[in-house]
Design a protein around this nucleic acid. Sequence first.
DNA 1: ATTAACTGTTTATAGAATACGCAGATGCGA
DNA 2: TCGCATCTGCGTATTCTATAAACAGTTAAT
Lengths: 248, 248
Amino acid sequence: MMDAMSSDLIPRLWGKAPAGRRGPKPALSVAQIVEAAYVIADEQGLAAVSMARVAEAVGCSPMALYRHVKNKDELLILLADRLCADLPELDRDLGWREGLAAWMRAQVDLAVRKPWFLDLPLAATLPGPNRLAWIDLGFYYLREVALPPDEKLAIVGIVAQYAVGEARIEVEAALSDPDNPYASFEQMLVTYADPERFPNLMASMATWRPAGPGEELESDDPSAFGQGLLMAGIEAHIERHLERGTPK
Amino acid sequence: MMDAMSSDLIPRLWGKAPAGRRGPKPALSVAQIVEAAYVIADEQGLAAVSMARVAEAVGCSPMALYRHVKNKDELLILLADRLCADLPELDRDLGWREGLAAWMRAQVDLAVRKPWFLDLPLAATLPGPNRLAWIDLGFYYLREVALPPDEKLAIVGIVAQYAVGEARIEVEAALSDPDNPYASFEQMLVTYADPERFPNLMASMATWRPAGPGEELESDDPSAFGQGLLMAGIEAHIERHLERGTPK
DNA sequence: ATTAACTGTTTATAGAATACGCAGATGCGA
DNA sequence: TCGCATCTGCGTATTCTATAAACAGTTAAT
């Protein structure tokens, strides 16, 4: 189902054309097409990215695109990797904890800046070069952490996954009441939720005390909580690993 | 952009029709429509869920659906909540750690069973009744944990978000080589990845030793690693909270 | 009885992805 | 240099898609 995978996807991701000999030199390139899609998504949202509009942007007929891209799904995969090129440079003088936190935060910021990223079908396809470079940066911050590579990969994946969720929350929050993002949630609870149907939730929520005017939030970064949770988990794992792992 | 939110979405999620007085009694119901969409998605994938096909399934004209549902986006939101009704009952005699782990695992299993769930546009909309009941179960397992409700909500959200990522990985793994899901990743690295461009990743991967035949995986649950990481993080947070929180 | 409100239908429109076949360009082998 | 295989881009056409708009029948309030 939904198999956008073609045997040429990965080469295309890496910009390796089969280098055909014969035939006219292509006037179009995959990079050009992806870039046009990127601009359209940026200006008008992902829904505006249609083959016809992309073709118009690069100045060719819609069907010409199919010579360079298997189908629209594949174009979107390429687009997702293109977006990863927008991830920023980060301070290299950070420990794994601060480094990974900044690494995570940068992903959230990117998604907030380009919310159409969240509309992309995020299949767990193989990463393209840009995304892989970002993963490499994650490994950089973990370079002095003594863990096997598959565990590092898992950690990096978990942190990135958390970034997606956090980005969703922040994007939605930006669209709703900036004062209290939980307002609608609470409103929904009191309006519809039967306390007998959701006893545990309601019982806990009953103790909820909205932050008074005197006390401020401990951090202005809404991802601070989850960030701390993840880093604490990683740290605990490292320590556990050191204990019973190879001591030398 | 992409604002599927209508003022009637939430009432519809909760099955509260405005109870119009006049006019003929509706032959269709929202539940009926959503159920039809559910069956189609289940049998033919989410891409097969079109207004026309849903209409055919319930035996009405396509446009009749729009009397009960604002548009297709809204139908998909309702569908997502409907899917949450398939989440299983869980053992109530578990501590927060095992309970939350089982709670997480159940979500992964559901997504693996119904992979079209991952194709749904997972906006961070307000949860419907079924999803809220699931959240309530998460709060059940956290009932004896002394944390404020907003932190519990954040924890539950983080764990659920992890479940989505894990489900993506497992679904994709099921479609690829069952022996070694990392095979294509490694293959991609050696084929395309320039060591100078991804030095940290490559350096770490160089130490990669695939699990030999003698040693088995510690767990047959591929989510065990992330699970442990999350639970350790939560535990650390609880302890930190107890230390400086109100002791009584 | 009148009327307002509500339901489902019919028709129509605009846009989507993409299969198929053609015309011209290009470079390889002869 | 002459074919010829191969490749690019284009034009056409098909099939689906969501959904706007107007309409006809049905019910309950007045």
